[in-house]
Structure formats: structure tokens, C-alpha cells
């Protein structure tokens, strides 16, 4: 199991008896499990920061429009939604916000599940539940934005 050979450290080293080769930490070798051979966690880490910066603008802007400006939450109605989604700009705003927020949140919860759910089975099923709910919500929200009909009634 160990990457270090069985040569004892107390024996002197020489060209004929070289020091054992120690792999650098986290070096990918033939023994590395397949699941950890990609840079998925690195990309996830970068995504959290990039999406987070974009979401600061999108979400705080969304809160400002929905809860602060023009009477706050009191003015929100079907007609208000119809007015905003008549513009491709606000459709794009809401669509990008939906996707980034859901993926950002799902990755955050994935991290939390990995941290706290100790049994393999618990961790697996919690993440399956998370992924199912995330895919469902993203697809539902996307469908609603693209198929919105202001003349539904």
C-alpha cells in the first residue's frame, strides 16, 4: 500500500543504494482511483467563485427590484411578471440567475453533504436526492421562462 519502499531510513544511501523515491503528495499514479483522476474539484472551486461574483450583481439587483423599488413586494403580481418578461433582457437575467444560483447552491450543498454525512450510503442517497431536486428545479424554471404566456387567460 505504501509508496515508500521497505528500505530503512537508518541504512546509509549511496549510488548503489539510493534513497527511496517518495511520490509528491496527491501525485496521480496507476493506483489513484479513477474517480479522483480529473480536476473536477478544482473546476468546482473556481466555479463557486466566478458564479458567486456574478450572482452578487444578479441577486442583489433582483432583491432591489422585487422588494425595494416601486412599492416593494406589494406590487408583485402576474401583470408585473408579464411586464418584465416581455423584455428579453429580463428573461436572460432571470434565466442566468436561475442556472447559476441553482448550480452554486447545489455544489455548496454537495460539499456540506460530503462533510457531514459519514456513512457511504447516506452520502450517496443524499446527493442523489440533491441532484434530482436540482435538475427538476432548473428544468422547471427554464421551461417557465421560455414558455411564459402573458395571455394565458
Amino acid at each position: 500500500m505504501s509508496a515508500v519502499s521497505s528500505v530503512s531510513a537508518s541504512e546509509g544511501t549511496s549510488p548503489d543504494n539510493p534513497a527511496p523515491l517518495i511520490e509528491p503528495p496527491r501525485a496521480r499514479t496507476a493506483r489513484t482511483p479513477k474517480a479522483t483522476r480529473t480536476n473536477f474539484e478544482l473546476y468546482g472551486w473556481v466555479f463557486m467563485r466566478l458564479s458567486g461574483i456574478v450572482l452578487v450583481v444578479l441577486v442583489l439587483g433582483h432583491l432591489l427590484i422585487q422588494l425595494v423599488l416601486d412599492g416593494g413586494v406589494s406590487k408583485v403580481s402576474f401583470a408585473f411578471v408579464a411586464g418584465r418578461w416581455a423584455s428579453p433582457f429580463w428573461m436572460a437575467w432571470d434565466l442566468i440567475m436561475l442556472w447559476l444560483a441553482m448550480l452554486h447552491g447545489a455544489n455548496g450543498l454537495r460539499t456540506i453533504i460530503n462533510d457531514y454525512a459519514q456513512r457511504d450510503g447516506t452520502r450517496f442517497w443524499l446527493k442523489m436526492l440533491l441532484y434530482t431536486a436540482t435538475v427538476f428545479t432548473v428544468l422547471l424554471g427554464t421551461l417557465v421562462i421560455f414558455t411564459f404566456d402573458p395571455n394565458i387567460r
Partner: peptide
């Protein structure tokens, strides 16, 4: 983060009611 994520699920569902009827949403 967890609180916001759980609200987000609810919020997408309530917004989806615009596809049901204006009355259901309002």
C-alpha cells in the same frame, strides 16, 4: 447558504404558478 438554497426551491415553484393561471400566481 443552505437557507437561501432551500428558499430558492420554493421560489422557483411559486414562480412556476404563472404557467397555471394568473389567479393561482397572485
Amino acid at each position: 447558504g443552505v437557507l437561501i438554497f432551500f428558499f430558492l426551491f420554493v421560489h422557483v415553484l411559486d414562480t412556476a404558478l404563472v404557467r397555471v393561471s394568473p389567479e393561482a400566481y397572485d
